[in-house]
Amino acid sequence: MANKTAESISREEFFYGHKACAGCGGSLAVRAALKVLGPNAVSVLPAGCMSAVGFNFPQLCFSNNSIISTFAGTASMLTGVEAGLRARGIKEFTAVGFAGDGGTADIGIQALSGAIDRNDNIIYICYDNEAYMNTGIQKSGLTPFGAKTTTTPAGSNIHGNIRPKKNMFEIAAAHDIPYAATASVGYISDFIQKVQKASQIQGTKYIHVIAPCPTGWGVAPDETVDIAKEVVDCGLWYLAEYENGEFRLNHKPKEFTSVEAYLKKQGRFKHLTDDDIRIITASRDKKWEYIGKNFAL
């Protein structure tokens, strides 16, 4: 039985033997993207899970060229890698960055904004596990409302994170970037197609992929893919693209699955009351109303 997606990517493994937790969504995103980009990808990883698990001297789990950047400098190092290789006359390469949600939306946003502004020919992939997981689950700008982290604990008065998730996809799109997309590791073919598309486009590309973290989300390791699917199916995340100044929705669930069922599966949302869930459901409906008005299908 032929699998079209599997046939479209390299059979080789470029991220192998790494020390990520069992069932890590981030490592799945990195592995899949590198299998699209092939051996000539030069990857840049800031401080974060993927650099912590990929580079344990003398172990090097990448079989393509790979480098750790400063936490804030993923995009600026990508700029340098791209300019340096171009200056040396090397044509066959892709500069790709893998930064977590904290490294993208909080610490690295200025460097990313600068790179998009210069329209450097790079791919920036944000694997979003919705908190600073590597250092022990602290809230980031992409932690959703109500999530319990070590810096937003759930008590009787305040129920976890009080702020909504930053809209990084539309922030990137607001720069008039050549290509931006959202994805989820639960829909891996969609993610792989978006990386393929990004690799064909000249200029800065930004892909925001939801990558559940079993450790931080409080789910079993084998539920990573299911929960990444469910976040899309219940409407709390969406698969979309931004290209030529237009937003396009790639996947419209016919009917949303239960938000409550999605939330209650996870340890980080266990404490939420019915009122909190109503707030989350209302914000989802408002978001989809916005999507319905502004995104093409």
Partner: peptide, 18 residues
């Protein structure tokens, strides 16, 4: 096993081959 390769695609560690 029919070799549909779903496990190969979704393995976070890439340990499955066909």
């Amino acid at each position: 096993c029919v070799g549909c390769e779903q496990c190969y695609l979704y393995c976070p560690d890439g340990v499955i081959s066909v």
